[in-house]
Amino acid sequence: MEKWQDNRAWFLVLPVFVIVAFSAIIPLLTVINYSVQDIFGPGQRVFVGAEWFKEVLGDKRLHAALWRQFLFSGLVLLIEIPLGIIIALTMPKKGWGASASLVTLALPLLIPWNVIGTIWIIFTRPDIGLFGATINKLGMSFDHTASSLDAWVTLMLMEVWHWTPLVALLAYAGLRAIPEAYYQAAKVDGASSWSVFRHIQLPKMRGVLTIAVLLRFMDSFLIYAEPFVLTGGGPGNSTTFLSIYLVKIAVGQFDLGPAAAFSLIYFLIILLFSWLFYQALQNAGKGEG
């Protein structure tokens, strides 16, 4: 059969192309444009080449923020992924319990991010906060505005509370999609519950877990609103993550050139790590006997 061809079909993808152009391609090109120029004001700009990239890559404070960011994202993944899987495994499979736990889990995901910051500021206040005051009453001093460690603990608690449900919901969906026959066959084969997890549930969750890891990595690597509301990047610079530092440069100091160069590097790091995670998860568990 002859293939029917008509180039007018391209018009059908035009709307998508226009949307993508305005939402991604044009802003990205603008950023690239900024990153190679020194901008003094409207109409006053000088081409500087790779100058800003050199400056940004040599910035000590940026290095510190980058390591802080890796530590944060690493901890987020190490805590949220296993915790999410455990929650999904213990959730009821059917009946009212299943619906109730799904709704309860989804609640934190429905709250606006800056509101979450505010909730946790109050929750952890050493004088009136339920959590902060209780800890202080127990004799441990706890103040996220004064101690870096306390600020990190608060931030991690908030992050885990906010986003573990997403991982749990994804893992739960993955678990529910496993046909009953797998569990029946495993019973007949005499498999232990660990074997069932290791050889049936975990491999079958590969797809959803890949999504969960990628989403949690990207989101936590981009975190801005919560630490901005909760600690403003402090105490000192202890919770100044990449995006907070970036906003300080771009909006606070109005250094558009360095900020643009910074953004591009930021973008490339996320792209690289997402790709690495994706490759690792796609190949995990495929080489064994």
């Binding site: 029946q184 066959a185 084969d189 491999p203």
Partner: peptide
Amino acid sequence: IAQVFQFPVLYDTMTVFGNLAFPLRN
């Protein structure tokens, strides 16, 4: 007893040998 189901049940991460050996290993 052994049971064979309507849809083939396989442990995807294992080799064919691993699959056949699974009930014995357990």
